[in-house]
């Protein structure tokens, strides 16, 4: 045997063993060497016996798969369709969100040229797609891994007929379009909130510079992360609905719990951070030329707005929760 062929065998064996757990490598390597040796010696008449044998052994990756006994994949067939759906939705949402936030940015800071608009947009889009893709894929990989781990322990227990899911009633089915529309809406809100140029809006009127902004910009910047958190929670709920596809008790509990969390954060933002610009009514009056004093009606409205919002949000949550519970309960015990 020539040295070239020795090297070929080494490389083949390495290509197999590098895909195996470290503990098995040496043993498998010895075994494969001894096997290949033997197969080669069995073909003394073939000058290219090493090549023939290795070709016969086939793709090293496949051989390694057989040694491992399991297929390796990041996202299995159980999640794959949903993964693709989420990628599509997020891809669309990211595009929309970026276009909106860049448009807002350009409206307040007009760019120098069309070229810079396009350049900026392509660059931002590309970075955002890469980020979104990486996060989604990582999330699904973790879900897959978790599933496989759970699957192993669950299989030890006896499967029973009770494990079969109920066939959902027609009214319990959540069409894909419902969460998708909500998601797109959430992305638009997210984009507008995070395109912070509008916050620094300065209005020039008769040589006076006014800040008219319903929020205190410093506080707004500080609590932006909380805003985003509530949006993320809302998105999580929509993705859960999308994945489930059916209104279930579990989904209802998840929704109620997450919305409660979201409500607490929102209440804090509205009532606990001092985010509202106390001079907004006066500034509005100045800008719209109503003299120095604020419109008393508007001032009153403005002062009471946080309390009003708190009441509306709590009321909204209670109504929504009752609705969800009632709907879910009703679905589980259908009327005769």
């Amino acid at each position: 045997m020539g040295g070239v062929h020795d090297n070929l065998v080494e490389r083949y064996v390495y290509a197999v063993t590098k895909r195996l757990p470290t503990a098995q490598r040496q043993d498998v390597s010895m075994e494969l060497h001894s096997l290949i040796d033997e197969m080669v010696q069995n073909r003394p008449e073939d000058p290219e016996s090493v090549v023939t044998v290795l070709m016969e052994m086939g793709d090293p990756a496949e051989l390694a798969d057989r040694y491992r006994g399991v297929q390796r994949h990041l996202i299995g067939s159980g999640y794959f369709d949903f993964y693709i759906l989420v990628l599509k939705i997020v891809g669309f949402a990211v595009s929309l969100g970026i276009v909106i936030s860049l448009a807002i940015g350009f409206a307040f800071n007009p760019p120098e040229s069309v070229g810079s608009i396009i350049g900026n947009m392509v660059g931002t889009l590309f970075a955002a797609y890469a980020q979104a893709f990486a996060w989604i894929t990582a999330t699904f990989a973790i879900m897959e891994w978790n599933q496989r781990r759970l699957g192993k322990s669950e299989r030890l227990e006896q499967w029973s007929l009770d494990d079969l899911p109920d066939i959902p009633q027609k009214s319990a089915i959540i069409p894909h379009s419902e969460p998708i529309v909500s998601l797109v809406f959430l992305v638009v809100v997210f984009a507008i909130l995070n395109a912070s140029s509008w916050l620094l809006k300065v209005t020039q009127i008769e040589n006076y510079t006014h800040f008219i902004n319903p929020f205190v910009p410093e506080v707004f910047k500080r609590v932006l992360i909380l805003f985003n958190l509530t949006i993320a929670i809302a998105m999580g709920i929509e993705f859960a609905k999308l994945y489930s596809g059916v209104q279930t008790k579990r989904l209802a509990l998840l929704t109620i719990g997450l919305k409660l969390l979201s409500l607490c954060i929102s209440l804090y933002i509205v009532a606990g951070t001092g985010i509202w610009n106390p001079d907004f009514a006066i500034q509005m009056a100045q800008v719209f030329g109503e003299g120095t004093g604020a419109n008393p009606f508007f001032q009153k409205f403005w002062n009471n707005l946080p309390t009003f919002l708190v009441v509306v949000m709590i009321f909204g949550y209670v109504v929504e929760t009752i609705q969800t519970v009632w709907r879910t309960w009703n679905l589980r015990f259908p009327e005769k």
Binding site: Q24, E31, L35, M39, M57, G58, L63, R66, Y67
Partner: peptide, 9 residues
Amino acid sequence: PGTLYPLLR
């Protein structure tokens, strides 16, 4: 052999 060896293991 590619099937048999892994099977033996």
